[in-house]
Simulated scan of single mutants.
Amino acid sequence: MWQRFRNRTEAGKLLAARLAEYANRPDVLVLGLPRGGVPVAFEVAKALNAPLDVCLVRKLGVPGHKELAMGALAMGGIRVINENVVDWLRIPQETIDQVAAIEMQELNRRNLAYRGNRPLPKVKNHTIILVDDGIATGATIRAAIATLKKQQPRELVVAVPVAAASTCEELQTEVDKLVCVIMPEDLYAIGIWYEDFEQTTDAEVCELLTRQKLLIAND
């Protein structure tokens, strides 16, 4: 029987322990998926003594059932569609476009809030460790993978505390390495694998990004 994580901090520390081979390497960059993935990614970046930034992706939720992903959107115009959900619910293209337009506005808002005038992180020829707090349908992480691959990283590692075993198996073919602490046969929902799964705020994301930047600068 799998044991639940106390919170994202504990999950990040346990995940970092499985990524020790990437510690103190100048080519490593840790990217967290906002917002919930950033507290996990912070613990990974701190343990590895690596820079931390965000990979901005937005889930395209089904209208009326926002937790169900019909796809995802990433910076650079990347759009990944969950064909099974779209076909099952017979969602028209017009609806997908409307939701995508709204989520694109939120992506741009977050980019400004988290990054300000800072340039996008350099991905080319770097080892990228992409971190989230868990993988449900996989649409969001696939959009992130697609946008990062376009930037030609040396190695792309996906690292999460929890994901269904079948999802991990599928994603392993899309990245260089996948690291997952808990791989249940049935996931149900990411939140049930955490005792504390409170929503992460924009302020917390900004604070963690700043803290890791200061840790690296003072090392």
Results as ranks from 00 to 15, higher is better:
residue 150 K to H: 14
residue 175 V to F: 03
residue 146 A to H: 11
residue 150 K to C: 09
residue 152 Q to F: 10
residue 157 V to E: 02
residue 150 K to V: 15
residue 178 L to V: 09
residue 161 P to F: 04
residue 162 V to A: 03
residue 155 E to Q: 14
residue 178 L to M: 11
residue 147 T to F: 13
residue 166 S to M: 04
residue 165 A to F: 10
residue 168 C to T: 10
residue 180 C to L: 03
residue 145 I to C: 03
residue 150 K to I: 13
residue 182 I to E: 05
residue 174 E to M: 11
residue 155 E to I: 06
residue 159 A to D: 05
residue 148 L to Q: 07
residue 169 E to M: 11
residue 151 Q to C: 05
residue 169 E to T: 15
residue 176 D to P: 00
residue 155 E to N: 12
residue 146 A to M: 08
residue 166 S to V: 03
residue 173 T to N: 12
residue 144 A to V: 05
residue 171 L to H: 11
residue 154 R to F: 07
residue 147 T to V: 09
residue 154 R to D: 02
residue 175 V to H: 09
residue 163 A to K: 10
residue 177 K to D: 01
residue 176 D to V: 01
residue 158 V to F: 02
residue 151 Q to G: 11
residue 173 T to R: 13
residue 162 V to W: 05
residue 148 L to V: 00
residue 176 D to T: 01
residue 177 K to E: 04
residue 146 A to P: 04
residue 147 T to K: 13
residue 145 I to W: 05
residue 161 P to I: 00
residue 173 T to G: 07
residue 148 L to G: 12
residue 155 E to D: 07
residue 172 Q to M: 15
residue 175 V to A: 00
residue 179 V to C: 11
residue 150 K to T: 12
residue 168 C to E: 08
residue 155 E to V: 11
residue 182 I to S: 04
residue 170 E to T: 03
residue 180 C to A: 10
residue 166 S to Y: 09
residue 175 V to D: 01
residue 160 V to F: 06
residue 167 T to C: 05
